[in-house]
Amino acid sequence: MPCATARAVAIPRDRLAPLELVDSPMTRSSSPRTAARLAPRWQRFYRDPSVIFALIVIACLLIAVVAAPWLAPKDPNASFAEGLSDAGAPVAPSAAFALGTDLLGRDLLSRVIWGAQVSLFIGLVANGAAVLIGVLVGLLAGFYGGWLGALLMRFTDLMTAFPVLLLAIALTAILKPSLWIVALVIALLNWVGLARVVNSQVLALKTREYVTAAHSLGASSGRVLLRHVLPGLVPTMIVWGTLGISTSVMLEATLSFLGVGVQPPTASWGGIINESQTYFTLAPWLVVFPGLAILLTALAFNLLGEGLREALDPSSRSSRVGL
């Protein structure tokens, strides 16, 4: 993205033939107002300490997911005799168990490392599906309008009358809770805000000259949609997609904490806290470390999303994230 836009800087805008303007999707995101300023904006993005922090955390998370079998010192689901004190209580962080053990004598560090897989799975798959639904609903409703648009957007409005967290709790409790059900429920609930934003953006994009030009040059509506409107939505999709990871990770953790998320013995950060919450005054590490993992992950994707928003789409307002 940055290098493509750097080229756009080199070409003075008045030399661009109108047809080139129509055909290159890049010309939209680098409209004349922004073209000259884009490079410094990305420079600021890469130098922003909060973005650097976010990228480091996300890199660690990815390493934890990919290399879990080698990184985790022990089997996450194995109970160790030396993992429980003589009285049967969990063991505090020590040389043998870096982050301590849980109520069953399992190694907390290994469970936290393996738990990253659940969070990242939800963040990528469930949130990815939610972004797809949101873009599809907003795009179709905005582009085709008519009864289809009215129907889709009224349904979107209706969905805002449900509190997301409560509905997620209700749905996962009623269906049989499992990783896939949690992913499905998050995908089905988390698209609403994006659909509204995409819809209003498509309504605005539709009236732009280059879209009208493409229409009058004989482009089919499907081609206009894919080649001229969809590229304009990419910044929004990237920003919402990133912020959405944070929301979905927190949602999954909350559901698992309430016992309607990922089921034991699978290690998930919310689930670890759920299992040990009655014991937390005696073994605070069982809340602190998984809690820290959730906090850092959610924080990293929030900061990265905000940084991307400032770099890609500075005129947009930030949207409510979190629960």
Partner: peptide, 25 residues
């Protein structure tokens, strides 16, 4: 603003248990 981001990214059950631990225990 950093604190605001922390507040937004902190799941309620973690915060609640943390507050209980510090201010009640």
């Amino acid at each position: 603003m950093g604190l605001a981001f922390l507040g937004i990214s902190l799941p309620q059950f973690v915060l609640g248990l943390g507050l209980l631990y510090v201010f009640a225990f």
